[in-house]
Write a protein that binds this DNA or RNA. Structure first.
Length: 880
RNA sequence: GCGAAGGUGGCGGAAUUGGUAGACGCACUGGAUUUAGGUUCCAGCGCCGCAAGGCAUGGGGGUUCGAGUCCCUUCCUUCGCACCA
């Protein structure tokens, strides 16, 4: 064995070995329990970032651990390869998105391989390949047949200069990111997936996801947003015709306080009124401009205009004026609200601004009411007042009574409303899955027949930022109508990339299947036992995937799977300190932490930070996520080149538990590297001679350790305690303390099992050998390369086989036993000393030993002992 | 505003059922090795105190023999959602 740890060599050899033996190929095996471990697949943006390294290391540790525990594991990898960044890169460099994407994939794949992940590369998939996205198209058509896909007009951000649709992230302060032109809202036809048909199941099934973090489930539940309320109709007449204005409310108990109605700018009634009122038309137009993002809308001032139309109150018959309000959302409920200024903050602000009547109808435990200023309790539940026959009723009672009365008049009923909206999947983009529709002058929108799938996306186009290049490509655009055979035009919109990621986990089970979307192998592997990814996908990706799984189930494509991901782990972000300098003119320049030296005073406290290049101080702006704009990123490649993959993996796992944020620390990385060098050195010096004994110790006939010297037994006890800790922490996925347990083991090993003349030499060697074999196996899922090399070089591999499938070490409970136990002595709950007592000592014996102990008597003298609490094996507390 | 998570040494973080707070690592201090720097090794390291001892898990209160852990209250931080009627 070479005495020097050479990570580059060690890792290269391990990779060659795994490659040669096909170590990570996953094969269906009904005889063994399966474990499908999946990390969210990356977007091929160019190179791996630290978030990827962390994500995939967590998954790899889990995969390797479960394999040692006897599971048939599968860890696949693929590429979320369609998307906007490829188009942006194309515009910047004039390279087709396909070329850019495939080049990035090649580089990132090589990085993943360097990190030594136990991935079955035979299952690699690419969402931008026709053999994958044809099934997006195929399922789209099945959903179309079932009415789960439909077409309607939707609102998009439109850049009037580039004549193109903008994604939300391309709109900055209401202007196009490239042109700076004010963005308009535009109505265009789009395809939608009817996710709302699954709202009830998507909500109720959250309860079954016991392996998901609570906050992700809460976020999804809020997003789905089920509200119970009442749909109320306000009758009116228009050109002699009787009509109804419908509103939805969760506060039907306040109906008697309704003094106006407000409709969204897009509401038909607003459009009608605008026809005869130019000022109103201008206002409606204004509302339709600007961003489509709701977070932006929420910042706007309340604005409105009367329509001049009146409706009558469904209970009193009173005349009520209809307004257009910029705060009313067309997409929620009926696109219209009843205005109850007395008990709704928005209506209150609106009424105050336009001098509308405010009528309080709820009394909240006698708290004061003034129409001058809004108070939070105005919106609380209370008793009806000023409400005629409903006076005195509470919230529930009033809602029931009012709903019943409305139902009698045919003017309303109880209703459940969802916040969740259907999923618009059309994107006016080139680099995505073509929507398989053909537009024919005579036949209308015609689905592409199955035997003409896939509709292949040409890979050689270069977008220029103006419109969709597909629309300028005759070879793609022109086709024949499948129905009538006449010349027709292909749909040029592509699908949202969330479609691609909504089912890739199913395809990993059978990526080579060319006849079907999925086959019976999916039944073996599904559901994903552990899914790992960033919290940023808590809502959309995870909700769409759940929806998609249910759709495929209901179409009979998969069976026995209601939910795709049994357990979910959302890993924390990777942070680093931010350093900057501010120039005299106020310009801020950020400096990478790698270029900054930290100064400490002699107590270890930070005393300053200076830039290495000029020795002048820089300011710290705290810590934040690694980002280009703050120049605080660390390139994983540098880390690997410098220290090797094992150190990178070890640091990632050690610095904090998987779900928490991780703070980058160069010296922490050094510490990890130091530990691995120490491990190597210890093995080189002591491991080989010890290993010769290992087969009698850990794997041979059980030895009676109770006869050995106390030092040897203490040594084993400490190894097995650490093993117990590590096993527990692997189960609960707290890998930082697994690393700490391994460090303890090495500390113990270096301390030795006792010198010459203590115990039998044979026992000392066996204890060391056993300790080494435990440490290597416990550390292996985290740092597989160095442990592979040591396992091989110390001779374990030849006798016991590959570390990949080595049995997980078993805690020897007998080793944890001690003849004498150290007990903590407390007086009045305060720590006063320690004493040793025989393991066999009973409660009374311990009590009398404690009361006689000097550490106790010092504090009990002159006082009377009231009570003695004995916690077996732990402590004695004397109360005086 | 609503919802969720979290406040523990100079720092990252431990503490499985209420039972020795600060494991493990980093930083720092002293010493050894080294021509020196680095590496490596040994020792120390919550705060105050010469010591005995006292004080410490954001603040305040409570339950308990005993509270980082349970309850109440308050402050702060982070994240998510946000005109949802």
């Amino acid at each position: 064995m070479h005495p020097q740890y050479d990570p580059e060599k060690v890792e290269r050899e391990a990779h060659q070995h795994w490659e040669r033996t096909g170590a990570f190929r996953a094969v269906e095996d009904p005889a063994r329990p399966k474990f499908y471990c999946l990390s969210m697949f990356p977007y091929p943006s160019g190179k791996l970032h630290m978030g990827h390294v962390r994500n995939y290391t967590i998954g790899d540790v889990m995969t390797r651990f479960h394999r040692m525990r006897g599971h048939n594991v599968m860890q696949p990898m693929g590429w979320d390869a369609f998307g906007l960044p490829a188009e942006n890169a194309a515009m910047a460099n004039g390279v087709p998105p396909a070329e850019w994407t495939y080049r990035n994939i090649d580089y990132m794949r090589s990085q993943l391989k360097k990190l030594g992940f136990a991935i079955d590369w035979g299952r690699e998939l690419f969402t931008c390949r026709p053999d994958y996205y044809r099934w997006n198209q195929w399922l789209f058509l099945r959903m179309l047949e079932k009415g789960l896909v439909y077409k309607k007009t939707g609102t998009v951000n439109w850049d009037p200069v580039d004549q193109t649709v903008l994604a939300n992230e391309q709109v900055i302060d209401g202007r196009g990111w490239r042109t700076g032109a004010v963005v308009e809202k535009r109505e265009i036809p789009m395809y939608y997936m009817r996710i709302t048909a699954y709202a009830e199941e998507l909500l109720s099934a959250l309860d079954s996801l016991t392996g998901w973090p609570e906050r992700v489930k809460t976020m999804q539940a809020n997003w789905i947003g089920k509200s119970h309320g009442v749909n109320i109709a306000f009758p009116y007449e228009l050109a002699g015709e009787k009509k109804l204005l419908r509103v939805f409310t969760t506060r039907a108990d306040t109906l008697m306080g309704a003094t106006f109605c407000a409709v969204a700018a897009e509401h038909p009634l607003a459009a009608h009124a605008a026809r005869s009122d130019r000022k109103l038309a201008a206002f409606v137009d204004e509302c339709k401009h600007g961003s489509v993002m709701e977070a932006d809308l929420a910042q706007l001032d309340k604005k409105g205009m009367p329509t001049g139309l009146f409706v009558s109150h469904p209970i009193t018959g009173e005349n009520i004026e209809v307004w257009v309000g910029n705060y009313v959302l067309m997409a929620y409920g009926e696109g219209a609200v009843m205005g109850v200024p007395g008990h709704d903050e928005r209506d209150f602000a609106f009424a105050r601004k336009y001098g509308l009547r405010i009528k309080p109808v709820i009394d909240v435990e006698g708290r004061p009411y003034s129409t001058d200023t809004w108070q939070p309790w105005y919106a609380d539940y209370g008793k009806c007042v000023n409400s005629g026959r409903y006076d005195g009723l509470d919230y529930q009672g009033a809602v029931e009574a009012i709903a019943a009365d409305l139902k009698k008049k045919n003017l309303g009923d109880k209703q459940v409303t969802w916040r969740l909206r259907d999923w618009g999947i059309s994107r006016q983009r080139y680099w995505g899955t073509p929507i398989p529709i053909i537009h024919c002058q005579g036949c209308g929108d015609v689905p592409v027949p199955d035997d003409q799938l896939p509709v292949v996306l040409p890979e050689n186009l270069v977008p220029d930022g103006t419109g969709n290049p597909l629309a300028r490509t005759p070879s793609f655009l022109n086709c024949k109508c499948p129905k009538c055979g006449k010349a027709a035009r292909r749909e040029t919109d592509t699908m949202d990339t969330f479609v691609d990621s909504s089912w890739y986990y199913l395809r990993f089970a059978c990526p080579d299947q060319s006849k079907a979307m999925v086959d019976e192998r999916a039944k073996y592997w599904m559901a994903v036992d552990q899914y790992i990814g960033g919290i940023e996908h808590a809502i959309l990706h995870l909700l769409y995937s759940r929806f998609w799984t249910k759709v495929m189930r209901d179409l009979g494509l998969i069976s026995g799977v209601d939910e795709p991901f049994t357990r979910l782990l959302t890993q924390g972000m990777v942070l680093n300190e931010i350093f900057y300098r501010k120039s005299a003119e106020g310009r801020i320049t950020y400096y990478n932490p790698a270029d900054v030296d930290l100064k400490h005073d002699d107590k270890g406290q930070r005393s300053g930070a200076i830039l290495k290049s000029d020795g002048q101080p820089v300011e710290s702006d705290g810590i934040g996520t690694m980002s280009k704009s703050k120049n605080n990123g660390v390139d994983p490649q540098d880390l690997i080149d410098r220290y090797g993959a094992d150190t990178a993996r070890l640091f990632m796992m050690f610095a904090s538990p998987p779900e928490q944020t991780l703070e980058w620390s160069d010296s922490g990385v050094e510490g990890g590297s130091r530990f691995l060098r120490r491990l190597w050195l210890f093995a080189a010096n002591n491991g080989k001679s010890a290993a010769d004994h290992v087969f009698n110790a850990a794997f041979g006939p059980v030895k009676d350790w109770t006869r050995e010297a106390p030092q040897v037994r203490e040594f084993r006890r400490s190894i097995h305690l650490a093993l117990k800790q590590a096993s527990y922490d692997y189960e609960r996925m707290q890998y930082n303390t697994v690393v700490s347990a391994c460090m303890k083991m090495l500390n113990t090993l270096e301390g030795g099992a006792g010198g010459a003349g203590i115990g039998s030499v044979n026992a000392v060697d066996q204890a060391v050998a056993e300790g080494v074999s435990i440490l290597l196996r416990v550390l292996y899922p985290i740092t597989p390369h160095i442990t592979y090399a040591l396992w091989r070089d110390l001779g374990y591999a030849t006798k016991l086989g590959d570390l990949l499938d080595a049995p997980w070490p078993v805690v020897d409970e007998a080793a944890l036993d001690q003849d004498e136990i150290e007990l903590v002595l407390q007086v009045n709950g305060k720590l006063r000393g320690h004493m040793r007592a025989p393991k066999s000592a009973g409660r009374e014996q311990i009590e009398s030993l404690a009361l006689a102990h000097e550490a106790v008597t010092r504090f009990t003298e002159g006082h009377s002992v009231k009570k003695v609490v004995v916690v077996p094996g732990r402590l004695v507390n004397v109360v005086v």
